[in-house]
Nucleic acid binder design. Structure first.
Length: 469
RNA sequence: GGUGCCGUACCCAAGUGGUAAGGGACAGGUCUGCAAAACCUCCAUGCACCGGUUCGAAUCCGGUCGGCACCUCCA
């Protein structure tokens, strides 16, 4: 199977060749655990999951590392925002470590529900402070840092290729146009590696360092942890598109300045989920979480299906209408699978050329920059092809689902059964059945109307009448 | 001000110069007394608009209009 991926560094779709076969090393920017993940956040993890599964489908081993940011980041990069963990702590009256644990658990509950494979290593920032300090010391030794106003800064003027990923034009950038420039910085684009002299009251997340007691800047953790677990150079770094201009740009600067080597070979970024009013954010508008969707009657797989329906590099517009479309589509898919399972409980072990062709096309589409929407279309085309026998269809669907992750193999073929219903209703149902036997259809329809008005649905089968709410 | 993306049917959405995938909804039909389910059919001579290149353009180029994102914490 051929695999090509869009690399943000070159803005082109490149053939994928791992740095060192056979294992692909990938690092994904993880959550900041100060609040629940909203469905926009989760879209990115679904895309990363498709990426990992496609790599595995293509026969690569994958070492997947993700950070969990449990140390407070400033609410902006200007050193005058609020600490998000602390803010959340104040609002809820819980200590910061409790908050971090709580939202970390919630995050993995959501990703598990979405069939997102867990990273092999999920590393907490607070467990790696010493690694960050060591990295800052390396940068210091090479002359990339300076101390000003109690903080340690990275000097971007010492790294000529700064801004390459985002294609920043440093001369023309209106630095500080929207945030006031930190007077401690020599260059407005310099960024903090280590803060001391916390200005926050009750700052509990502080550590000793050569520069004084304080806490790390918000880019250093990803560099320190990714290199610790994946080495100085690795294959893939991914995350949301918003990370390109600042976070990933700064990570590249500090990582490559420290090692003198190319840090990451492929940069892969997922676009945003937006709603009708624009971006979905934690601080604006309706805060949509997976739980909210579930409360409204959607299965987490409905949301995964919804995400798969759009390409990861395109903005996807969320709406309830689209959610319903995904839900209905998946319901139909489940019914198809159930029907195939009844017909052929065992999937085929040998495939005909026709069936293999569907898998080939599917792999081609996923292999060309993860075109999941076409993958779904391929799946439907297979389902509708009468020339492919049921057992082969099922085997192919399971194979496709190794990437799609919709849990098709786990779908149970349940016999329909009547729900427990009040005696009064049951009596009416029985009476209707009796009327039907006597071919008194007028009476039968009257009874159907009465029962349905009471909120029940009737479904006649050869074995009797099914009653459901 | 800078950077980038997008505009495809009623809705979502794919489309890698060679004649518009797929899903949902709607409508019609087959089948069951009715209903439900299932299955079948229908659903863009056209891809925001105007030019251009080409044998050929949704795809490339230029322009116009409209929308969005990023450059502030965010995936």
């Amino acid at each position: 199977m051929n695999l090509s991926l869009h690399n943000t560094m070159t803005r082109t779709i490149e053939p994928f060749e791992p740095v060192e076969k056979p294992v692909v090393r990938m690092y994904c920017c993880g959550p900041t655990v100060y609040n629940f993940a909203h469905i926009g956040n989760l879209r990115t993890y679904v895309f990363e999951d498709v990426l990992r599964r496609t790599l595995e489908y293509a026969g690569f081993g994958v070492k997947h590392v993700m950070n969990v940011t449990d140390v407070g980041h400033l609410t902006d990069d200007g050193d005058d925002g609020e600490d998000k963990m602390l803010k959340s702590s104040k609002e809820t009256g819980r200590d910061v470590y409790t908050i971090a644990r709580m939202y970390t658990d919630a995050f993995f509950r959501d990703t598990d529900a979405l069939h997102i494979l867990r990273p092999h290593i999920a590393c907490r920032a607070t467990d790696h402070i010493q690694d960050m300090i060591a990295l800052i010391k390396r940068l210091e030794a090479k002359g990339h840092t300076y101390v000003s106003g109690g903080n340690v800064y990275f000097s971007i003027d010492t790294f000529p290729r700064y801004g390459e990923l985002a294609r920043l034009n440093l001369e023309e950038l209106m630095s500080g146009a929207r945030i006031h420039v930190d007077e401690n910085k020599r260059n407005p684009k310099d960024f903090a590696l280590w803060f001391t002299n916390s200005k926050f009251e009750n700052q509990v997340m502080v550590w000793d360092s050569p520069w004084g007691t304080g806490y790390p800047g918000w880019h250093i953790e990803c560099s320190a942890m990714s290199m610790k677990y994946l080495g100085d150079s690795f294959d893939i770094h991914c995350g949301g598109i918003d990370h390109i201009p600042v976070h990933h740009t700064n990570e590249i600067a500090q990582s490559e300045a420290a090692t003198g080597k190319r840090w990451v070979k492929y940069w892969i970024h997922g676009e945003f989920l937006i709603n009708e009013t624009g971006k979905m954010s934690k601080s604006k508008g309706e805060f949509l979480t997976l739980s909210v969707l579930q409360d409204k009657g959607y299965d987490p797989m409905d949301y995964r299906y919804f995400c798969l329906g759009g390409h990861y590099r395109s903005q996807l517009v969320f709406s309830w209408q689209s959610m319903d479309a995904a839900k209905n589509a998946r319901r139909n898919l489940v019914r198809q699978v159930q029907s195939l399972k009844r017909e052929a409980p065992q999937g085929a072990t040998m495939l005909s050329d026709a069936a293999k062709e569907y898998l080939r096309v599917f792999a081609e589409h996923l292999g060309y920059d993860l075109n999941a929407p076409r993958g779904l279309a391929d799946m439907w085309n297979l389902i509708k092809d009468d020339s492919v026998p049921a057992d082969e269809k099922l085997a192919c669907l399971y194979d496709m689902d190794r990437i799609l992750g919709l849990g098709l193999a786990g779908i149970e073929v349940v016999e329909e059964y009547s729900e427990s219903i009040p005696e009064g209703i049951q009596a009416l149902v029985d009476e209707r059945l009796e009327a039907k036997r006597n071919k008194n259809y007028h009476r039968a329809d009257e009874l159907r109307a009465i029962v349905e008005k009471a909120g029940y649905k009737l479904k006649d089968t050869p074995d009797g009448t099914l009653v459901t709410k």
